[in-house]
């Protein structure tokens, strides 16, 4: 049985977002959307997290931060890019300091479009990531028994 689907813990990192997507991410914790129904917890600690949720684009200064957060997470782990900024840089793409979407630094598993991404879309993206986590876990186990 794969329990990772039943209890995905999230680490939310704000790249260089305008805060619009962050508010929507937090909105999914509110009573209206209540992601804890799915066992989702916003941990704020990479060592406990299963899913890295990044809002906003990556800029020159936070490349090492994003990389380190990802490296501190235990396998299996997934990356969800929330908002068009995290996907491609969005309206900030032309800025002198912006590198682009999260996929310039990490391999992204799920892209959630929208500016700002709606809470429904954020939750949908996380649920999509669950399937990916499950596959990753299966692969992990195979590696272990080989």
């Amino acid at each position: 049985m794969n329990f990772i689907k039943k209890s995905p813990w999230i680490l939310h990192y704000d790249g260089s977002s305008c805060n619009g997507c962050d508010i929507e991410v937090l909105a999914s914790l509110t009573p209206l959307y209540d992601v804890e129904r799915f066992g989702i917890i916003n941990t704020g600690n990479p060592k406990h997290a299963d899913i890295l949720l990044i809002t906003g684009s990556v800029n020159e200064q936070n490349i090492p931060v994003v990389k380190q957060l990802y490296e501190q997470m235990a396998e299996p782990k997934a990356v969800v890019a929330v908002g068009i900024c995290a996907t491609s840089g969005g309206i900030f793409a032309e800025c002198y300091n912006v590198v682009g979407g999260v996929d310039k630094v990490l391999s992204v598993d799920v892209y959630v479009p929208g500016c700002a991404a709606r809470p429904e879309a954020v939750i949908d993206g996380v649920v999509k990531a669950l399937g990916i986590l499950e596959q990753k876990q299966k692969r992990m186990r195979k590696r272990k028994y080989r």
Binding site: M1, N2, F3, I4, K6, S7, P31, D34, E36, R37, F38, G39, K47, D50, A74, E75, P76, Q137, M140
Partner: peptide, 24 residues
């Protein structure tokens, strides 16, 4: 808090998940 909340067995799911994760 006016939310629906997780299933009652959620703590067990959490622990079983943690047991399956990579040890660091």
């Amino acid at each position: 808090q006016g939310r629906q909340g997780p299933p009652v067995l959620q703590p067990f799911y959490d622990v079983l998940k943690l047991l399956q994760k990579e040890p660091i």
